[in-house]
Design a protein around this nucleic acid. Structure first.
Length: 563
DNA sequence: GGCGGAGGCGCC
DNA sequence: AGGGCGCCTCCGCC
């Protein structure tokens, strides 16, 4: 049963509809202040699947009112999937001209947290057009169009699962933004002070950083050097006889010169200061919680993005400040070698799947004599999925292709499709975008009769670039689907364990890693749920295909202790 | 002054 | 030596 929630000029309207999108019984309208109570009541009574234009627009306000829902259908996120999926390419929805549902929801984006004065419902009330349409029509129409697109798909079960997983992810994202990641500012301040020196007045360099800058200036004999300027720094290095062509870490690392060690140290600490220093802490940490905004579907492959505070790039140096509340624990879980396992299952490669069964997949490649060391196995596998052509990874490709022709053949096919400008599709039905105008123009130029060598080279290079993208897309995108299913299964187990702000709840998600903040008493149960959810995700995507998705779990007080 | 690309680097 | 991101500073441009 669906409960369709639509904004109206004075509040909202809820229409209850059946699985085909047909109205079941009378709808109800309410003023905006009455919305949370109405949602709560219907949720308790019948656990409907909430249908709304966007989880990011509706759910934060409900969370602030203390309401959590079980299931939803996020029309905007699902629309994006259905518009470009090869599985629904023939649907009315996919063939229609671009409309309001194709616009990303960037405006009227409420920030999380209790401090906001203007509520979402105020904004919605102002935004809602007086409308010649019946309230609710546009949202209900879109739902019907989406259900029709799914029903007419080649593999409706897959795309239906994808839409459910994407929508469940949107609920988790809003909940995690609202609940926040437990973060101890005092610990972070200690770490910063230890590494950088005590906190300076605004704009000044902390003393340790300034001291390092001085060492660099002295060693390079450039007393006025501003080390944050790449151009200035490169000139100074070359003047001192350092044969660098850029100021990148990986290039400088291999150069033997007394200025290099302090310079690398300076760059590392300078990065910490600018990305996760005191300013970052003041901006993003509130009452012991880090509240980033997760963006489900923010990456074309289906991975999440995040904005605000760089949540998905939290560096190792900072993770020690992520600590459980007293009497609580963090359950940190990581899916081991997720992408190669997904590739093995995607391609039905029994040999590769069996290499990872019951143990580390990379070690499995060594044990089977495919490569010599675990490090080589990892480089080779990543190279296969990213499209490496050179270096160690490139050299290992033939051995990998010989041992695992199905898996490697699958990524090769995806690359060929991309090079020809075709779409590729993940396990559950998310399809890659088509290349843009510039790409098509470059290919057309190269086919012209008077095409020069340069034009042909440009086109070939662009084609290969796009092929590497589509090659990676099927793996990264299918892995993202696995992770969404993992999180969705886990979320529902946590709800059964009393999940929510006072019980175990998700606080972090990073592509193949989740973190749950839980009262100590339920920590073991949470760990079991994490493992069970991983197994369930594997079955959801790949049925009975015999591939393992092992997860490593750690029950810790600090994120830094998880690895 | 604001804007946006480039250089650089953090995460997977 | 190869995919996906976000975000910081610098720097050239309007």
């Amino acid at each position: 049963m669906y409960a369709v929630l639509t904004a109206t000029p004075n509040g909202a309207r809820i229409d209850v509809v059946d699985a085909d999108g047909a109205a079941v019984d009378g709808s109800r309208s309410m003023r905006r202040l009455e919305i949370p109570a109405a949602v709560s009541e219907l949720e308790r009574a019948s656990r409907p699947r909430w249908v709304w234009d966007s989880t990011a627009r509706w759910y934060p306000e409900l969370l602030r009112a203390g309401i959590r829902v079980d299931r939803c259908h996020d029309l905007r996120l699902c629309h994006t999937i259905l518009r470009s999926s090869e599985l629904t390419a023939d649907s009315v929805l996919a063939r229609a001209a671009a409309g309001e549902w194709d616009v990303p929801l960037d405006d009227v984006q409420p920030s999380t947290g209790p401090a906001d004065s203007a509520t979402l419902f105020d904004l919605l009330a102002v935004d809602s057009p007086p409308g010649e349409d019946e309230p609710g029509t546009a949202v209900a129409d879109e739902l019907r169009a989406q259900l029709a697109a799914v029903a007419g798909a080649e593999a409706p079960g897959r795309i239906r699962l994808l839409l459910a997983a994407e929508s469940a992810g949107a609920l988790s994202a809003a909940e995690m933004s609202f609940d926040g990641l437990p973060f101890d500012a005092a610990i972070h301040d200690r770490v910063l002070t230890e590494l950088l020196g005590s906190r300076p007045r605004d704009g000044d360099r902390p003393e340790r950083l300034e001291a390092l800058a001085d060492v660099v200036r002295r060693t390079l004999d450039s007393p006025d050097l501003h080390p944050d300027s790449p151009a200035e720094l490169l000139r100074a290095l070359r003047r001192a006889g350092v044969p660098a062509t850029s100021t990148r870490q990986w290039e400088l690392k291999s150069i033997d010169h007394p200025a290099i060690p302090p310079l690398l140290e300076y760059k590392k600490l300078s990065r910490l200061l600018s990305a996760n220093g005191w300013t970052w802490m003041d901006t993003w940490i509130r009452e012991g919680r880090f509240h980033p905004e997760y963006v489900p579907g923010g990456v074309v492959t289906g991975r999440w993005a995040a904005k605000g505070g760089g949540a998905l790039q939290l560096p190792g140096q900072v993770r020690g400040a992520v600590v459980a509340d007293p009497g609580w624990k963090l359950v940190v879980a990581d899916a081991a070698q997720l992408e190669p396992r997904v590739l093995a299952a995607l391609s039905g490669d029994d040999a590769m799947a069996s290499a990872g069964r019951g143990k580390d997949l990379y070690q499995g490649l060594v044990d089977r004599g495919v490569v010599d060391t675990r490090a080589s196995a990892k480089v080779a596998m990543l190279g296969a999925m990213y499209g490496a052509t050179q270096g160690q990874a490139g050299r290992l490709m033939p051995r990998l292709a010989k041992a695992y022709p199905q898996a490697i053949g699958m990524v090769e096919n995806a690359a060929r499709a991309g090079e020809q400008g075709k779409q590729v599709t993940t396990r559950l039905g998310r399809s890659s975008p088509l290349p843009g105008e510039a790409w098509l123009a470059a290919q057309a130029d190269a086919r012209a009769e008077d095409a020069g060598d340069a034009a042909r080279a440009r086109a070939r290079s662009a084609a290969r670039d796009w092929g590497r993208f589509t090659r990676n897309f099927i793996v990264q995108g299918s892995a993202a689907e696995w992770a969404l299913c993992w999180m969705a299964h886990l979320r529902s187990s946590l709800r059964e364990l009393g999940g929510g702000p006072t019980g175990p709840h998700l606080v972090f998600f990073l592509h193949d890693e989740v973190m749950v903040h839980t009262p100590e008493a339920t920590a073991d149960a949470v760990r079991d749920a994490v493992h069970a959810a991983a197994a369930a995700a594997g079955r959801s995507l790949f049925g009975t295909f015999p591939v393992d998705f092992p997860v490593t779990t750690a029950i810790v007080d600090s994120y830094a202790d998880a690895k």
